[in-house]
Computed example of a mutant assay.
Amino acid sequence: MEPMTMLHYINEEQKALSKILDEYDFTLDPRLTKLKTVTILATGSSYNACLSAKMAFEKIADATIVIEEPYHFNHYGRLIAGTDTIIGVSQSGKSASTVDAIKNLKSSEIQQIILTSDLTSPIAQIADYVIDLNMGVETVGFVTKGFSATVLHLMLLAIRVGVSKKQIDSHRLNELKKELYELISHFQGVIDQSNAFFEQHEKILKLGGRFVALGYGPNWGTVKEFETKFTETVRRPSQGFELESYMHGPYLEANWEHTLFFVETPSCNKSRSYALANYMANYVGKLFKITTEDSPDSDTLALNIAVSEEFSPLLLVIPFQVLAYRIATTKGIDLSKRIFNDFDSILKSKIEKVEES
């Protein structure tokens, strides 16, 4: 049997997310009616997924979201006043820092919700309200399908919160579902466009010495996931910045070794992104754009798909997933070969079971 690769899971995303949406339970849940002020605990790609879904969650669920790195929160953080819900997100369910943080809040009166793809995992055993990501266990270490499933699930949870609060009626629910079905139907086309874009620019992408991506709004989460995926796979210095924060210092390191990606959606911030891109083009080796709109520019991956800004990360992360795999492969990196095999056992970043209390 052919071993599963990162690309296999990318190609499964359309089917997997359609299944999630088909099977999601949108009925009123009394436990969600009080959800108003939420702290989310997540790290790595799970953190990036939460950041990608934050705008949609806050808008749809009429809630305030704070996202925390669980290790830092566990040792130095404190809940903001009025917090009524903790959401722990771990695709594998084995993130030691997230498990520890949830366990330490166990005695709290605040409700705890867990999102994981493994219902037998350590994190699933320590909470009463567990949501199955419903996409199976992703065996490749560089998660792609799991990232997109997490983003979608957070958006769907927000919709169910709205239904439970009686702020979303059946008509609005059907509108939101229709928009998501339409968006997901474009996944394979975006994968095809991304592969074609890579092949067009393969030579320059293969030579990239440092990769930087800039995004705004919910696509701050998209470029942070770019940072994670490129660092894990391409293994060259890679970083994702919120658009405005890049202008406050990080631009000073720009030079000919840099490949810049600008992620753009229709927004009041688009003109700001255009202005920065026009300026930076004179100071970096190569500048690309990835946009949901249309463009004749050969250096722009133009998806030409109408999508609301809050749902756009579901589409805009796909090009970076494809590019991460394709660039790593063209550089001769064997992603099936594990490196740092003893990392988790020595640093104890992952756990296999929960100790009895």
Results as ranks from 00 to 15, higher is better:
Lys59Gln: 13
Asn134Met: 05
Ala56Trp: 02
Ala101Lys: 10
Lys106Thr: 11
Ala56Ile: 12
Ser52Asp: 06
Thr83Val: 06
Thr120His: 13
Gln91Met: 03
Ile126Val: 08
Ile123Tyr: 04
Ser108Lys: 08
Ser97Tyr: 09
Ser97Glu: 08
Ile80His: 14
Gly88Pro: 10
Phe142Leu: 01
Gly141Arg: 02
Gly88Trp: 01
Ser108Ile: 05
Pro122His: 03
Glu58Thr: 12
Pro122Tyr: 02
Ser92Gly: 15
Ile114Ser: 00
Ala124Phe: 01
Asn134His: 15
Phe142Tyr: 15
Thr116Gly: 05
Glu109Ser: 15
Ser95Cys: 05
Gly136Tyr: 04
Asp128Ser: 11
Gly77Ile: 10
Ser108Leu: 13
Asp100His: 14
Ala127Tyr: 04
Lys94Gly: 07
Phe142Ala: 03
Ile65His: 10
Lys59Leu: 14
Val99Glu: 01
Val130Met: 02
Leu133Lys: 05
Thr144Ser: 12
Met135Tyr: 14
Ile113Pro: 00
Ile131Gln: 00
Tyr76Asn: 14
Lys59Asn: 10
Gln111Lys: 13
Glu69Trp: 06
Gly77Ala: 09
Phe73Gly: 10
Val99Pro: 08
Gly136Val: 07
Ser107Thr: 09
Val140Gly: 06
Lys54Asn: 04
Tyr129His: 02
Leu119His: 03
Val130Gln: 06
Ser52Leu: 13
Ala81Gly: 11
Tyr71Trp: 14
Asn134Gly: 09
Asn74Trp: 01
Tyr71Phe: 11
Asp132Tyr: 04
Ser52Ala: 15
Ile110Phe: 08
Asp118Gly: 04
Ser92Cys: 00
Ile86Arg: 07
Lys106Gln: 14
His72Arg: 06
Phe73Arg: 07
Ile80Pro: 12
Gly141Asn: 07
Arg78Val: 05
Ala56His: 12
Lys94Met: 07
